[in-house]
Design a protein around this nucleic acid. Structure first.
Length: 347
DNA sequence: TGGCATGATTAACA
DNA sequence: TGTTAATCATGCCA
């Protein structure tokens, strides 16, 4: 590091390395201070040189010594002129540095995270404790399943919890960012009394701080998204929600299947009726019949026993119905009499 | 805990 | 659009 650069470093905290700027500045200092090049020019140059050397030496001194020296320099008669010229130099070079650091375009990853959090109802206005997408997904996944509402409310509660944590953390980050920014700005303002710091430089520093904090925020957003994804898969994935139908429902479906074995294709009306009886959805009935047909066809032998069982059951039911009908026809005055089963049928 | 049962999903097809 | 066939993922039981 050459002397001039060290001078500028000591003055501005930035290694400018712009020789023309420093030299021009030094001329400017002289012109500003004296307005002319006279006979005592050499002596004044020597004076400025002394000041600059004192400034340079500050960094090598102890705190107490430096403090005393700083006070002396602050009271020096040339300080205002030298300070304003150095500010001017720094402003010029600072602009050229900033030119190379244009505003970054919006990060696509951050945009994706923001969009997702918005869609899930984590960021933005609360959508009644959970997202519409989640509600739709849950409804589509479980249809009319009885425990759907319970699980969905559980999902909403968990999502709300994630949302709350996210906002608390976000608030903390913002507060920390503001506090840190204020702190740095105060420090810079304080330092601006002894070294040239332009408002634009402060602005740039604030930008750097904000960028650092937004990268931390991005991590928060990413982990929140992951949490939502896990929650979704845990609660809303239909395959995870598979529950065996009740024994009664399976019996009703099997009875229909085996009593229509020659054509096990229930009509839409029959499906609706079965769905109502079994407390399941029509599409669940369709799924059940689809699975049953293919599995029966694949292994008739295995299902034979079941088929016989349900055939017998159907026969009993039919006989029972017929008996009740006959009984009602012969003695209408005794509608509540015990069922009369055929002698060869055991229940 | 492994294996079977079973409900759901998906691609292909008529 | 409904069905088939394959497959997945979970539930259940010995």
């Amino acid at each position: 590091m050459d002397d001039q650069t060290r001078i500028m470093h000591a003055l501005g905290g930035v290694g400018l390395g712009v020789q023309g700027g420093v030299q021009g500045g030094m001329q400017g200092v002289q012109v500003a201070m004296h307005g002319h090049e006279g006979a005592d020019g050499d002596a004044r140059k020597q004076d400025i040189g002394d000041i600059l050397h004192q400034i340079m030496a500050i960094t090598d001194q102890s705190l107490d010594e430096a403090q005393a020296k700083k006070h002396g320099l602050n009271c020096h008669r040339m300080k205002p002129a030298l300070f304003s010229v150095l500010c001017e130099i720094k402003e010029k070079t600072g602009l050229s540095i900033r030119g190379a650091q244009e505003e970054d375009p919006p990060d696509p990853q951050l945009m994706r995270l923001d969009n997702m959090l918005l869609a899930e109802g984590v960021s933005g206005p609360e959508k009644g404790g959970g997202s519409a997408a989640a509600a739709a997904a849950a409804a589509a996944a479980a249809g009319g399943a009885s425990d759907n509402s319970i699980e969905h409310s559980d999902y909403r509660a968990k999502l709300s919890q994630i949302r709350q944590i996210y906002h608390t953390e976000l608030e903390k980050y913002e507060q920390a960012c503001n506090e840190f920014t204020t702190h740095v700005m105060n420090l810079l303002r304080e330092q601006s009394r002894t070294r040239p710091i332009s408002p634009k430089e402060i602005e740039r520093m604030v930008g750097i701080i904000h960028r650092k904090f937004s990268s931390i925020q991005m991590q928060l957003k990413q982990s929140t998204c992951e949490a939502v994804m896990i929650l979704r898969s845990r609660f809303l994935d239909a395959r995870r929600k598979r529950r065996n139908f009740s024994k009664q429902a399976t019996e009703i479906l099997n009875e229909y299947f085996y009593s229509h074995l020659s054509n096990p294709y229930p009509s839409e009306e029959a499906k609706e009726e079965l769905a109502k009886k079994c407390s399941i959805t029509v599409s669940q009935v369709s799924n059940w019949f689809g699975n049953k047909r293919i599995r029966y066809k694949k292994n008739i032998g295995k299902f034979q026993e079941e088929a016989n069982l349900y055939a017998a059951k159907t026969a009993v039911t039919a006989a029972h119905a017929a008996a009740v009908q006959n009984s009602q026809a012969s003695s209408p005055s005794t509608p509540n009499s015990a069922p009369c089963l055929p002698p060869n049928v055991t229940v």
